[in-house]
Each structure stands twice: as structure tokens, then as C-alpha cells.
Write a protein that binds this DNA or RNA. Structure first.
Length: 470
DNA sequence: AAAAAAC
């Protein structure tokens, strides 16, 4: 069996892995590490929760060890980009854990926190910068940081980083990188159009794709409940009565929707927090920390939390809305069943979301089993306590309606029946290389790990107002 | 019609 030492990683990194209790590389790690150590460009595609961060972090540390060079003032040797601040923070914490026995400096660069500390952290030069695009460009414009010495450039969630909303920033950043560099792109999904963009930025890349998207959700019990939009809150209430839900992440399509759901849940006696981009960085970090620590078992999120975020023991992902971008579904449900655990993903599908569901099923190349939900007792004046029937089974005249179900109908969500791939499904090897939370920070902006005292729910000073109901 | 990401 392959071990981390077989992959050519140097001793101090192996020691850190041992200290963290990791034994066996996951397939993406085994596939990527030797190529990255050899200096190749790489496109890495692997299902969620299989240790992609370690797949690039470990060999990057190995690369850094090959040279005695120190970064010049305001320069960095490795640049890692992430689509959200929380993911950037998590990546940096992982790198710090892997670099436990090494003396490399790392720093976080992202918005929503004071810039001064980040500028000071960059001033002497830093080995590894983990950043989101906006603040990075800010620092580059201020000449607080230069990319002239970047030897390794990483795009995590690469397809997200290369889509329309981020493309301009990425182009700007790439234009400031040395031509001669190593580039590593990672994601669980890679739509063909984006893969083409990616290939323009990579030089003769190795492609390591260890699991097709279709098997992404093998250990996740997926189900969909057809539910009129107006009954969704009551349906969620009904779902939460299930006490096998130890920790649930509820996704909504909009920030306003997330706030509404939290309000409803709190009024119904459930403690829940929201996390989305209209919250202050302080409130975002508090909500995530409360969810991670278990002091709050429900987190209601926009797609800010869809990608990469690693929380142990998320038993359920609930899609309050079906995402309109199908790839997003794969990332959302990947927040459960991480690192060999299992989990459930339940999606509420309103009348107007059927086409989104069809898109998702086409992407994952499977039908999502339909279950009947039971409405909770609150705010369902007309249909309280009435099980909601699948309209596909009810509607349509014989011969032309009623799309057949491709898979058997599992029991109620969380009942443990109707599970796919429970036996004989490939499981990641035991002990994938993922560090625990709370790794000590070195040279990181203090504000990122220690929120400012002020606790508003509004963004600070960006001119936007919190969203108001109309 | 959305989310994220700088101030």
C-alpha cells in the first residue's frame, strides 16, 4: 500500500502527518503529490472531502524545502487563491498544521478585516500567502505585496475562480505572476467550458482525476421532497423533528432567504445562525465557530459555505432551495459525508425548481429518490400535519405524465433505509490527511482569527445596506 | 433574479 513516504515527501512533513495521526494518502493525494514535487503543472479533480488541500499543500512544502531562498521584502513564494474568506482561513490553518516542524511563514490576505496587519505581515516577505482576490489586488495596487517571486500558484475551487464573477480579478492577478511558475488547479467539478479556460493558464499540465462526478455522492443518502414554496418552512420544521439530525447545514439561494429561515427557526424554538456575505466578518466567523463547536447545531447559509468548508459531523445538508447551477449541488452536499463518514442530503423542490432538479440529475447522472415529507406544526395553516405527496406520482394522465422513478423510494429521511452504496462502496482510506481545527497561527492577521469586538450584522463601510424586505 | 470578492 502506498504511504506518504513512498510519495517522496521529506521527513519533517511525514512527522507532522504522523503527529496529526494521518497514515494513508487518499487517491487524489497519491496521484498529485509526486507530480507536484516534480514541479509539474496540475489539474486535480477529486470528489469533495477527499483531502485536496493536503494534495497540494504537502508537496508545496516539499518544493519550498528544495530551495534555501528566502522571500525578498514584500514578496511571496507561494500564492493560494480561494473564493471565500472562510475557505482561505481553513486552507491556511491546514498548511500551518502540515508545516508544524518547518519554519515557513504564512499569511492570510482577505477583506472584511483591517488591512494594516496584513500589510505588516507581508512587509518582511512571506513564504505562503493564502488570499481571496479582492484584498489581494488591493495590496498589490498599494505595493504592499509583489507577486514577482511566486514560484507556485494555486487556484482552489478552480472552476469557481474562473467563472464570470471572478475572471477579471484572476486575469489581473495572473498578469502579475512570473511567466515561469508552477500552477496547480483543484476542484471537485470542472465544467468543460471552464476546463478550456483553465488549460490556457496551465503549461503542459498533468491531469489527475480520481473520481468521476457521478460517484461524488456515493456515501451520501440523497433525497428530494416536492413541496410548494409556501410550505417550505413548515416542511423544514417537520424535517428537524428527526433527532438523527445531529448537525445540519441548510442552504438557501439568497441572503435574504437565509435570514428569513433563521428568523422562522428561532421563532419556532430552534437555535440557528445565518452565514452570508451581508454579514460582518465578525458575525460570519462567530456563526461558523458556533456550528463547528456544536454550540449551534443548525447553520443556515448561502453558497458562501457551499465549497470547501470542512466541519466534522455534519449529518445533514438540507437544500431549502435547489441551486440553479448544478455544480453547486455537488459542492453543497459534499459538506456532509466527509473523510469516510456518511451523511444525508435532503432537497426541497418547489414548483418552479423542477428544471433545476433535472439539471442536477443530469450532472450527477442519477435520479434523486423522492420521499414524502411531513409538514411541521408551525405556520402551515392550510396543510399542517398533512404528508405532502409527490406531484409526479399524482399529476398527469396515464400515458403522458408521471415521470418514472429510476430508483426505489427510501424511507423517511434519516431512517437509515434506502441508503446507496452502504456495502461495498469504495471508502477513502482511513486517516486522510486533514488537520483538526484550531491549528495555531503563525504570522497570520490577528483579526482573521480573533474577531473585532464590534458585532454588527451589517457589512462595515462598503456602502451597501443590509438587504431589506420590500 | 444570485452569490462571492476591496474600501
Amino acid at each position: 500500500m502506498t504511504t506518504f513516504s513512498d510519495l517522496g515527501l521529506p521527513a519533517p512533513i511525514l512527522q507532522a502527518l504522523t503527529a496529526e495521526g494521518y497514515e494513508t494518502p487518499t487517491p487524489i493525494q497519491a496521484g498529485a503529490i509526486p507530480h507536484v514535487l516534480a514541479g509539474r503543472d496540475l489539474l486535480g479533480i477529486a470528489q469533495t472531502g477527499t483531502g485536496k488541500t493536503a494534495a497540494f499543500s504537502l508537496p508545496i512544502l516539499g518544493r519550498l524545502m528544495m530551495s534555501d531562498a528566502r522571500p525578498k521584502p514584500r514578496a511571496c513564494r507561494v500564492l493560494v487563491l480561494s473564493p471565500t474568506r472562510e475557505l482561505a482561513s481553513q486552507i491556511e490553518a491546514n498548511i500551518i498544521a502540515y508545516a508544524k516542524f518547518l519554519r515557513f511563514s504564512t499569511t492570510l490576505v482577505f477583506g472584511g478585516v483591517p488591512v494594516g496587519r496584513q500589510i505588516r505581515a507581508c512587509a518582511p516577505g512571506v513564504d505562503i500567502v493564502v488570499a481571496t482576490p479582492g484584498r489581494l489586488i488591493d495590496l498589490l495596487n498599494q505595493r504592499a505585496l509583489t507577486l514577482d517571486e511566486v514560484g507556485v500558484f494555486v487556484l482552489d475551487e478552480a472552476d469557481r475562480m474562473l467563472d464570470l464573477g471572478f475572471m477579471r480579478d484572476i486575469q489581473k492577478i495572473v498578469s502579475l505572476l512570473p511567466k515561469k511558475r508552477q500552477s496547480l488547479f483543484f476542484s471537485a467539478t470542472m465544467p468543460p467550458a471552464i476546463a478550456k479556460l483553465a488549460s490556457n493558464l496551465l503549461s503542459n499540465p498533468v491531469e489527475v482525476a480520481v473520481a468521476p462526478v457521478s460517484s461524488t455522492a456515493e456515501r451520501i443518502r440523497q433525497s428530494v421532497i416536492f413541496c410548494p414554496t409556501r410550505d417550505k418552512q413548515a416542511m423544514l420544521h417537520g424535517l428537524l423533528a428527526d433527532d438523527t439530525i445531529s448537525r445540519a447545514l441548510v442552504f438557501t439561494r439568497t441572503k435574504h432567504g437565509a435570514d428569513k429561515v433563521v428568523k422562522y427557526l428561532n421563532a419556532s424554538g430552534f437555535k440557528a445562525d445565518a452565514i452570508h456575505g451581508n454579514k460582518s466578518q465578525n458575525a460570519r466567523e462567530r456563526a461558523l465557530a458556533a456550528f463547528k463547536s456544536g454550540s449551534s447545531r443548525l447553520l443556515v447559509a448561502t453558497d458562501i459555505a457551499a465549497r470547501g468548508i470542512d466541519v466534522d459531523g455534519v449529518s445533514h445538508v438540507i437544500n431549502f432551495d435547489i441551486p440553479n447551477i448544478s455544480e453547486t449541488y455537488v459542492h453543497r452536499i459534499g459538506r456532509t459525508a466527509r473523510a469516510g463518514a456518511d451523511g444525508s442530503a435532503i432537497s426541497l423542490c418547489g414548483e418552479d425548481e423542477r428544471s433545476f432538479l433535472r439539471d442536477v440529475e443530469r450532472l450527477i447522472r442519477q435520479k434523486v429518490p423522492v420521499v414524502e415529507g411531513k409538514l411541521g406544526s408551525v405556520s402551515a395553516p392550510t396543510q399542517a400535519e398533512v404528508p405532502y405527496r409527490d406531484p409526479r406520482a399524482v399529476r398527469g394522465r396515464p400515458g403522458q405524465g408521471g415521470k418514472p422513478q429510476a430508483q426505489g423510494r427510501p424511507g423517511q429521511p434519516g431512517s437509515g433505509t434506502g441508503r446507496h452504496g452502504a456495502e461495498g462502496a469504495p471508502r477513502p482510506n482511513a486517516g486522510p490527511a486533514r488537520p483538526r481545527d484550531g491549528a495555531p497561527a503563525q504570522n497570520r492577521p490577528r483579526d482573521a482569527s480573533r474577531p473585532a469586538a464590534q458585532g454588527t450584522d451589517r457589512p462595515r463601510g462598503d456602502g451597501r445596506r443590509a438587504q431589506q424586505p420590500r
